[in-house]
Simulated assay, not measured.
Amino acid sequence: MTAPSPIRVLVVDDSAFARKVLRQVLSNAEGLEVVGTARDGLDALEKVAELAPHVLTLDLVMPGLDGLGVLRALASMPGAPRAVVVSSAGEESELAVSALQAGAVELVNKPTALATDRLYELGGALVEAVRTAARAVPHPAPDVPVAAGVPGPVSGLTPGRKLVVVGTSTGGPQALTRLLSALPADFPAPLALALHIPIGYTQAVAKRLNAQCALEVLEAEDGVELRPGRVVLARAGQHLKVERHGTVGLARLDRHPLQMPHHPSVDVLFQSAARVWGADTVGVVLTGMGEDGKAGAQAIRDAGGTVLTETEASCVVYGMPRAVDEAGLATATAPLEDMVPLLLHHLA
């Protein structure tokens, strides 16, 4: 039996030490082949044309053409490689989120911005991100201007009766941008989101989304109110749960259960919504790797609620929605561009 061809990887970073570390880490991983390195954005584009990599690891802050410039150039190239951003949380957080919205598939956080051996700590996460990116299906980045236009008012829906919970992973920042920017300002239900992303980036995600849609988007804080017109994004590293006191819904943050593979967990969010909102829960499972959300979808359906999934056609990775679909838990499914009308239909 013929062995599968290795995943061809190009390492792009303006630091010679970082290039050395990333090349060594990736070269030692089974099924990966580092075909070259590039020291800046222009060098990267030349190497892409010359070496035809499947995936590139992409530094963002580089002289000349930076990482965002590389992503914009790749968007116009047929068969372009998928990008994994390697970034430092903090000052680079907003830049990294912009890169994810511009088409990068995965984000790996550098343990340090310094040229030290601590860079080797990102090895396992980087290898897994490259493997995920190699399986991803690229889609055009959404063209969403600041203060984007949205559909007209929604009529005939009772504000606040239902709760919408959304789970996503790989490709999630792009998917959330497209979904939320299409929602009207008078969307009748609060939204709670769980996105798999490294710690230190969710505040930047919320800030970007808040600027690009008509709803208020904020990073979750313990006790923040859930209300129509507001979108609450789980803070990376903690679970987002929901509770209700009379007519007032609240977000809660904690680390339990500790054994979950993801913090935040889509399952934990969905299960808490099903316990409190019951049949008035609408769960939405978007693009992502793995099965997080499947158990939560089961809880929502058991409570009489609704589960919507993104179809394979628009997913960057058809993993999380596939798990829900194949378990027979989806009430309905649609490509991302048709998700808002479907969502509004199930809020009626």
Rank of each mutant, 00 (worst) to 15 (best):
A52L: 11
L51S: 03
F270Q: 01
L65E: 06
H139R: 10
Q101I: 12
D143T: 12
A75V: 06
L329V: 14
E94T: 12
C213A: 08
A274L: 14
D13S: 14
R23L: 07
Q174F: 05
A192F: 09
S93W: 00
T306C: 13
D267P: 07
Q101H: 12
G305V: 09
L258E: 10
V48A: 02
S155D: 10
V276P: 11
V166C: 12
D292A: 03
G305P: 05
V25C: 05
P341E: 08
L343T: 04
T281A: 14
T112A: 12
V166W: 14
L253M: 04
A189G: 15
H346W: 14
S265L: 01
A206V: 12
L32P: 09
A141D: 02
V154A: 13
R244E: 03
S98D: 14
Y201H: 05
L42T: 13
T202Y: 05
L71F: 02
L68R: 03
H245A: 04
V248G: 02
S5N: 09
L269F: 11
G200L: 10
G246P: 03
S272M: 09
D43H: 15
V11E: 05
A323E: 13
E291W: 09
D14C: 13
P145G: 09
G304R: 06
A194L: 08
A83T: 00
Q203K: 15
E221D: 10
L65W: 07
L258G: 04
G223Q: 11
R301F: 02
L71A: 01
V307S: 01
L253P: 02
K110M: 11
M260V: 11
H345D: 10
A303W: 09
A251K: 07
D325E: 15
M339L: 15
P63A: 13
R39L: 12
A279C: 06
L250K: 14
A206D: 09
L32M: 11
M260G: 01
Q212C: 14
Q238Y: 11
R161W: 06
V242Q: 06
V84G: 00
A220T: 06
G304I: 07
V217E: 02
V276K: 09
A192S: 10
H345I: 04
G304P: 04
T2V: 06
T37Y: 07
G246L: 04
S314A: 04
G90W: 11
L119F: 13
L180C: 04
P4V: 04
T281F: 12
V127C: 05
A80V: 07
P153N: 01
V130P: 01
P151N: 11
V317D: 00
K207G: 13
A73N: 04
A134I: 02
A75D: 10
G246W: 03
D14T: 11
A141P: 12
P78R: 05
A96S: 13
A96M: 03
A18C: 14
P173W: 01
T333W: 12
A192N: 11
T37R: 11
R82W: 00
V164W: 12
M339S: 07
L343D: 02
K20V: 07
G200N: 09
S272K: 08
A251C: 14
H239Q: 04
L56K: 06
D292L: 03
P4R: 08
E221T: 13
V266G: 03
G152A: 14
P151L: 13
M289G: 03
L193T: 06
V48Q: 01
Q203G: 15
G293Q: 01
L342T: 07
M260H: 08
S314R: 01
E225N: 09
P153D: 02
